[in-house]
Design a binder for these strands. Structure first.
Length: 496
RNA sequence: CGGGAUGUAGCGCAGAUGGUAGCGCACCAGGUUCGGGACCUGGGGGGCGCUGGUUCGAGUCCAGUCAUCCCGACCA
């Protein structure tokens, strides 16, 4: 896709982080603002990355026994309100359909809502699908033989947020939501934890984003869940980002929608549930984790284009000569399932192309000119470190394959080091505030376990408890805020 | 919903004291170029978010309105 980028300067991260983020998203061609408030247009380049995420995740879901299905966009208001804490959690951000027809106003000649076409019952545009899915599951589940029911849905959802940000919080976003039903609590919990691990695996090994696995405090729990598991990532500005969640829903939705099954003894029991999801927010996490002041930086495993070859030539003859020389390299890379492009566009000059591909985050750029041919070499520039090296043409395929693997690992390593370096253990309230203001990142501190304390800390510092890490060691201590006894430290941070 | 800012060409912007729109990039044509965002020459394109005022005359002044962005409040 030919896409011309203009005004390519990116605001430096150090100057204005928000602006830097917006610049990367807009100028690398990932997304754009739309005419609709809080919604965004995902452009072809960005969508390709999302598709790669989808394909990888979808395979992981299928490998763990799940299948895909699709449920309606509209949810009757009555369904929505059946689970009390669920409706309470989402009520403030719902788009509601009230009418089904427009008409021409004869006096003003304007199209207006036809008041006569008012719906008997309003429809909620799904902010999440638990209710409509559990209403359906009632008729799908009768016996323990119908369980477990392991279904995933790829869909869009709408949450009418007050303030939006490209990818991180948009009014409409794309996601997948898994909804499973189980015969026992243990099995459901196991499922929730399994899917959390799938997410963590995906984030770390495909997106090269290190995450912390943990559980949410009751305060931060999903509306309607008994336990919320999450993966938390750290962005380059020191703010945390929730990258995925997996919920153990207990029997809350089964009870609300009367979903029972007959166990082996013929007794009726309520079903146990989970739900889990990741969204296009991961796109934002990807941008914020790796990119630099030259533009997007993509891990090879998710990059739509992994290798680009830019010929440097005078005249058609030279171009053909170069093309012939790199032909084996291209074929070899394709054989290794690496996406490669030979950019023979003679309307742009090499320097322009270099800048363009850097902006788009292409992991490896190869330049080949007459000088290289006479040395039987290629010039290879890696996007992550900006280093340039020369590879012999003879074993260029292996070298590039190895380099791509190297870049993937390096991006993860850098992000992991940044994460590890930004988990600050603190023992006093003063230190807590000082670290938040000057260093950012996660603050690992004692908390007395009460919602009151959690909320007060949030009020005073804007920091929330991101999670209680899954493998958190028990450690006696005193809450940094209240001074009351605390059995363990938890992770605080300011978050997106 | 508060605070700040901005709406002028596809994009980014300039247009003091009001006089009938301009610059850079992009685009089109031709030529020279091609190892880090090329250069020269010649072109095409907008009536200034919207609605009313004031005025002989309004991107420019006044009033209203809409939209967007940033910072808050809100938010798996």
């Amino acid at each position: 896709m030919a896409q011309t980028l203009t005004n390519k300067e990116i605001t430096p991260r150090s100057k204005d982080y928000s602006q830097w983020y917006n610049d990367i998203v807009l100028k690398s061609g990932l997304a754009d603002y739309s005419a609709v408030r809080g919604c965004m247009i995902i452009k072809p380049y960005g969508y390709t990355i999302w598709e790669k995420m989808q394909h990888t995740l979808d395979k992981m879901f299928k490998d763990t026994g799940h299948v895909n299905a699709y449920f309606p966009l509209f949810i009757p208001k009555s369904f929505f309100s059946k689970e009390a804490s669920h409706v309470e959690g989402f009520a403030k951000e719902c788009a509601v359909v009230t009418h089904y027809r427009l008409k021409l106003d004869e006096t003003t000649k304007e199209i207006v809502v036809d008041e006569e076409a008012k719906l008997e019952e309003e429809l909620i545009v799904r902010p999440t699908s638990e209710t409509i899915i559990w209403n359906t599951y009632r008729s799908w589940i009768q016996s323990y033989r119908d369980l477990p029911l392991l279904i995933n849905q790829w869909a869009n959802v709408v949450r009418w947020e007050m303030r939006t940000r490209l990818f991180l919080r948009t009014a409409e976003f794309l996601w997948q939501e898994g909804h499973t039903a189980h015969a026992t609590a243990e099995e459901a919990i196991e499922e929730a934890e399994k899917m959390l691990n799938v997410y963590a695996d995906f984030a770390e090994n495909t997106l090269a984003i290190p995450v912390i696995k943990g559980i949410k405090t009751p305060n931060e729990r999903f509306a309607g869940a008994v336990e919320t598991y999450c993966i938390e990532a750290l962005m380059q500005d020191g703010k945390a980002l929730q990258a995925g969640t997996s919920h153990f829903l207990g029997q809350n939705f089964a009870k609300a929608f009367d979903v029972k099954f007959a166990n082996k003894n013929g007794e009726l029991e309520y079903v146990w549930a989970t739900s889990w999801g990741v969204s296009t927010r991961l796109m934002g996490a990807l941008v914020m984790s790796h990119s630099d002041d030259l533009g997007l930086v993509l891990p090879p495993k998710i990059a739509p284009l992994q290798v680009v070859i830019v010929p440097i030539y005078k005249g058609l003859d030279e171009m053909c000569e170069i093309k012939n020389a790199v032909e084996p390299l291209i074929k070899g890379l394709l054989k290794n399932n690496i996406t490669v492009k030979f950019d023979d566009d003679d309307k742009q000059r090499p320097g322009w192309k270099f800048a363009q591909y850097e902006m788009q985050g292409v992991p490896v750029r190869i330049a080949v000119g007459k000088r290289d041919l006479s040395n039987n070499q290629i010039e290879v520039a890696r996007r992550d470190t900006h280093e340039k090296v020369y590879f012999s043409l003879d074993n260029a395929v292996e070298s590039v394959v190895k380099l791509l693997d190297n870049i993937q690992k390096n991006l993860f390593r850098l992000a992991k080091e940044r994460l590890d370096a930004n988990i600050h253990k603190v023992n006093s309230w003063e230190e807590f505030k000082e670290v938040l203001d000057n260093k950012g990142g996660f603050v690992y501190a004692h908390w007395d376990g009460t919602s009151e304390t959690e909320l007060k800390i949030k009020e005073e510092t804007k920091a929330t408890i991101r999670c209680i890490p899954l493998d958190n060691p028990k450690e006696e201590g005193k809450c940094i805020y209240s001074g009351k006894p605390s059995p363990q430290r938890v992770l605080f941070a300011r978050a997106y």
